[in-house]
């Protein structure tokens, strides 16, 4: 399972970085979204991967999974959503004001 998660995070990051380096605003937005998915998965995995355990400590339970990374990921997801929404609005504003969706606001000649 660790290897699968690691490959997944790596793949998402690679896609994110590739798209982030594109010259149009929409791929850049998508790239940042992929990057934040990768980061969220990574943060989540930092509490170590356990299956079928509750995130609480109690007697009579076989063990627990670390709840703190889940709280951190929740915060990161919320912030990431807000940022993505803002970035999309900004990209639309740039498209409207600059007349094209190139990140530098001008087409290559």
């Amino acid at each position: 399972m660790e290897i699968l998660i690691a490959i997944l995070i790596g793949l998402l990051t690679a896609c994110g970085v590739f798209l982030l380096l594109r010259a149009r605003t929409f791929p850049v937005v998508l790239g940042l979204t992929y990057l934040s998915y990768a980061v969220n998965l990574y943060l989540f995995a930092m509490g170590r991967l356990t299956v079928g355990r509750p995130p609480v400590i109690g007697s009579g339970l076989p063990g627990y999974t670390d709840p703190l990374p889940q709280a951190l990921v929740l915060t990161a997801i919320v912030i990431g959503f807000a940022m993505t929404a803002f970035l999309i609005m900004l990209a639309l504003k740039a498209r409207a004001e600059l007349g094209n969706d190139h990140v530098d606001g001008e087409e290559e000649r």
């Binding site: 994110g16 982030l20 850049v28 940042l32 990057l35 934040s36 990768a38 980061v39 969220n40 990574y42 943060l43 995995a45 930092m46 509490g47 170590r48 703190l68 990374p69 951190l72 990161a76 912030i79 940022m83 803002f86 970035l87 900004l90 990140v103």
Partner: peptide, 21 residues
């Protein structure tokens, strides 16, 4: 400005995750 800072935030979270791990 926004895009580079968002990319920076992703790196920040990776560092935070590694420290917690």
């Amino acid at each position: 400005y926004v895009v580079i800072n968002l990319a920076g935030s992703s790196l920040f979270l990776i560092a935070v995750g590694a420290l917690y791990g």
